[in-house]
Amino acid sequence: MALGTTAAAPVLPSPDALLGLFPPGTTTAPDGGLRIGGCHVAELAARYGTPALLIDEGALRDRAGRYADGLAARRPDSMVAFASKAFPCTAVYRLLAEEGLGADVASGGELALALAAGTDPAKVIVHGNAKSESYLRAAVEAGAGLVVIDSFDDIDRLEHVVAQVHGSGRREQAVLVRVTPDVRPDTHEAVSTGRRGSKFGLLLPQAREAIARLRTGSRLRLDGLHVHIGSQILDTEPFVRAVAAVAELGRFPVYDLGGGLGVRYTYDDRPPGIEA
């Protein structure tokens, strides 16, 4: 005689709960299938095959607008930038440029895609903790608005590139110093980038040294500070601690406070709204 247990039937989420994990405006079709952006997912799968990555243009434009409008209502001279490493796709760069957003780029390829898609170079923010000379040269020649300094090597390399590109002219490249505030948000260790030991940015003592050096140079213009503490963050409190940390370094015209606000991956996730 075999002994065993009967597994309980799984509790299925309600249709409304399921739709809450998809972009706003996602609905169910009369046949019970899923519609994203008005398109039946099964029909898209039949036409294009699977796996497929679907982007709801309307929902993306709406989200971009909420970020831009929400920040502008509180800080009129602000700018929102798309962290393009999330999805470096020409069509997405173009769409967000049309919505007035800038773009964070983290490689020469992302820079080329952003520019090809029509992103205003003045709204391009150049990132990367191992920037090559060719990458920096492409950024300077394109007129990138800001280059983020992650290390003292970045300063050396960028000063050299600016001197080569602009010769004896007095043109400067605007830069931000990336500060590591030693803040650990409640997120996965792999995407926690503001903690001590991170490969990105400079701790406060090093940041002070970089700021002092940049203020004595003639090729780079220090516009402000950058901080990014991680991704998929579902609470605003760590951002407050990061701001308090960088405030110790003084007042600057520009503060780039990164991003990392989380989205819903599970039913239990409750990310703060953009406005919050």
Rank of each mutant, 00 (worst) to 15 (best):
E110K: 07
V227G: 04
D150F: 02
F200W: 11
P205T: 06
V140C: 05
D31C: 02
L249D: 06
T216L: 13
A138C: 09
A46F: 03
R195E: 11
D223R: 14
R270A: 15
R178L: 08
L54W: 00
L203I: 11
S198I: 04
R63Y: 09
Y267C: 00
T216G: 08
T27I: 11
A190Y: 04
V105W: 05
V254S: 00
V254Q: 01
E43S: 14
E99I: 08
A114L: 09
R171M: 05
Y265V: 06
R251E: 15
Q232L: 10
A210D: 03
L111W: 08
Q164W: 01
V92W: 02
L21Y: 08
S132H: 09
G201V: 02
H166W: 15
T119E: 06
A45C: 08
A276K: 09
I233E: 00
L220G: 04
A142R: 09
G118Y: 10
G143D: 12
Y265R: 10
L202I: 05
L158N: 06
G33N: 11
G25E: 10
A142E: 07
D268R: 04
D235N: 13
G201Y: 01
S134T: 15
A190I: 10
G4E: 13
F152D: 12
T6K: 07
G230M: 04
R208E: 15
V240T: 15
R61K: 08
F87Y: 14
F87Q: 10
K123N: 12
L234D: 13
A52E: 03
G167M: 05
I125Q: 01
G102D: 05
D268I: 00
A212C: 00
A130N: 12
E98G: 15
D268K: 03
S231H: 05
R75T: 14
E57Y: 08
